[in-house]
Design a protein around this nucleic acid. Sequence first.
DNA 1: TACTATTTAATTTTT
DNA 2: TTAAATAGTA
Length: 723
Amino acid sequence: MDVTPILDKLNDAQRQAVTAAAEPTLVIAGAGSGKTRVLVHRAAWLIDVEGISPQSLLAVTFTNKAAAEMRGRIESLLNVPVQHLWIGTFHGLAHRMLRRHWREAGLPQNFQIIDADDQLRLIKRLLKNLEIDDSRWVPKEIQWFINAQKDEGLRPQHLDDENDPNRRQMISFYQSYEEICQRGGLVDFAELLLRAHELLRDNGELLQHYRRRFQHLLVDEFQDTNAIQYAWLRLLAGDTGVPFVVGDDDQSIYRWRGARVEHIQRFQKDFPGTRIIKLEQNYRSTATILNAANALIANNHSRMGKNLWTEESVGETIKVYSAYNERDEADFVIGRLRDWIAQGNARADAAVLYRSNAQSRVLEEGLINARIPYRVYGGLRFFERAEIKDALAYLRLISNRDDDSAFERVVNKPTRGIGARTVEMMRSYTRANACSMWRAAGTIASGDLNGRAANAVNAFMSLIERMARETRGLSLHDQVDHVIRVSTLLDFFKKDKGEKGETRVENLLELVSAAKSFEPDPAEEMAPLDEFLSHAALEAGEGQADAWEDCVQLMTMHSAKGLEFPLVFMCGMEEGLFPHQRSIADPDGLEEERRLCYVGITRAKQTLYISYAEQRRLHGVDNYAQPSRFIAEIPDECIEEIRPRVQVSRPLRSPSPMRRKNRSVAPGNELGIHLGQRVRHSKFGDGVILNCEGQGAHARVEVNFETAGTKWLVLSYANLDLM
DNA sequence: TACTATTTAATTTTT
DNA sequence: TTAAATAGTA
C-alpha cells in the first residue's frame, strides 16, 4: 500500500494524528493548523491503510457546509465514491437514526422537523390556548428555557421546580409544548438530538448494533458540543468505539447556546488513556497576526494552553484606526477596500467583520455609495422565507393532517373567511379534547359554527383533502407545483403589487425547481415529500443568492469562524460593543468575547485592520466609548496606529488615547483652553472660543468661526489647533 | 379584515 | 434609529 498520498504534505503533528493507533484521541487544533485536513486524512488512512470498512466510520460536524466539505475531500482523496458513509451534522445523523427507528423512538413514521421559527409560533399559540398573558411570560424566554433543558438532556419530569413558581410555570409550559409536538408528530432541533440519545439509551439491541457498526467516531469542532451531543457520542462509543475528536478550546464561542468547552477535559476523564495531540503550526497567517492572537488569548485563564507558530515572515503590522464616529470608520474601511481592489485584488478576498449585525448598516451604505459590490452573510435563508414556509405548511398538512403548526399557518392564508374567532373556537375544542386542530375543525364545522364560518372551514378541509388526493403518485416537483397553484398561494402573491410580491412568486417557482433537483436517497425508506420537508428544515439553504459575483464579504465574527481572508477588517472595537456590554460583567462571558476576538484576528492571512469609533450612534443616541481592551492586549510591536485625518501640530489630547491606562481624555484649562482663545480647525478655519462645557471625553467648546459661523464642537474629536 | 399608529426592545446562530 | 409586534381604527 502506497501511503504517500495520504501522509505526504503533512507535518509531524498532523501525521501523528492521522496515523494514531485505534485509541481515544484528542486533537487540539489551533486556528489554521489544518484541522479539516487531519480529519479527512484520518478517514482516508483508516479506510485505505487500516482497511477499515467505510461502513464503520461515523463523522460528525456542526454545519452542513463542513459535512459536505469533509465528504467531498474524503471522496477525492480516496478516489472512490464512498457510498453511505455516515458523514453529517449531529442533527442530520440523529435524524437519520430516528427515521430508521421511528417506532422505537416513539414517533409517527412521517414526523416532521420544525425550525426555530415554527417552534416560537407553537409556543405563542400555546400561550394563547392557555389564555396566558404573554407579556408576563415572554414566548422567546419559554423557547429558550425549553431548548436549554433539551440541550442538557432533560425532560420535564426530570426537572425540579425548586419551589420557584416561575420555574414551575416554565416546566409546565415545557410539558404542554411536548404534548402538542407529540400529538402533531413534530420534532424540533433539540428534540432530534435528545430523542436520538434516548433511542440508543433505551434500546439495548439498537445500541449494540450501532456500537458494533461504528468503530471509529470522528468529531469536528469538539469544543462546540453540548451536553446531549456529548452524551450521544459517549453512548455510541461505549467501551469499544474509538473516538477521534478535533477541537480548539480557544475558539469556543457558542457557550451561550449550550456548547461546553469543558467536554475537552471531560473527554480525557471519560476515555482514560486518551492521546492528546496538539497542532500548533499555523499555515494561514503572518507571524505578526499570530503573535497578536497569542498575546490576546493568553489573557484567558481557563485554557489548555497552546502557542501557534508559523514559518511565515513577520509580515505587515496590524493597523489600528481611531475613527471619529461610525461613519468615519466606514469611510476608512471603504478607502482601504478601494486601494485593495485598485491593486488588482479580488473583492471576495476582503472581509469586514463586526460583533453585531446592526453594525453592517453604515458599512453597507458606504459600500453602496462607493459602488463596491458586497455580500452580507446571515439573514433569511431560502427555506425560511415566509412564502416558502407557507407552501411547505400546505405540503406538511398533506403529509399529516394533525400537524397543528402547519394548520395554523395556512388555515387562513390566503384569507378564506376563517377569522380569529373561528380559530379560537377550534383551539378551545383542541384543549378540551386533547386533539389536533384538524379534528377540532372537522367537529366544529358540523356543529357549533354558523353557516358561513362552517362553509369556510369545510372548504379549507376539502381543499387539503383534494390536494392530497390529486398529488398522490405525482413526482415531487409536480406535487409542489400543484400545491402552490391549487392552494391559490401563487395567485395570492401575484396580486401582491410591487417588487415584494414579485420576488415571492419567483421564490415559490424556485421552490418547484428545488424540488425538481432534489434527489431522494433510496436508502432512506421514506416518502420523497417527507424527505424533502426534512431536508428543507435541516438545510435551510443559502443566505443570499448570487454568491458568484466577486464581492466584499460582510459578516459577524461568529459567522467568520472557519473562514480565512487575505484582508480582514475588525470594526467597532469598542468597550461595550466588543466586548459586548452584556458580557463584560461576567468573567466567563468576557473570556468568550476574547475568544471571539481571537477567532476574528486569526481569520486574517496577510493584512489586518482594527478600527474603533470614539463616538457611535446606537439606538438613536450618541455614545462615547473607550477603545476595546482587546486592542490594548495586543503587543505594541504588532500594531501601528494610523490616523490620516490628524494634522495637528499640537494635539489637544494625547496622541494615543487607546494606549493610556487612565483614559479620561482631559482637555480643559491645563491645555490652554480659555474663553477668547483663538483656534484653527482643519475644515472650518479660524475662530474664537466663546464657551466651554463638560469634562473628559464629553467636553465641548463653542467656537465662533470667521467664515463658518458658531459651532459646538466636542474637543476630543475636533482637533483644534491653538493659535 | 386590512391598514395605520403606537409601543417596545435592540449579541452572537446552526440545526 | 429602526424594525417588529401589537393595538386600534376604517
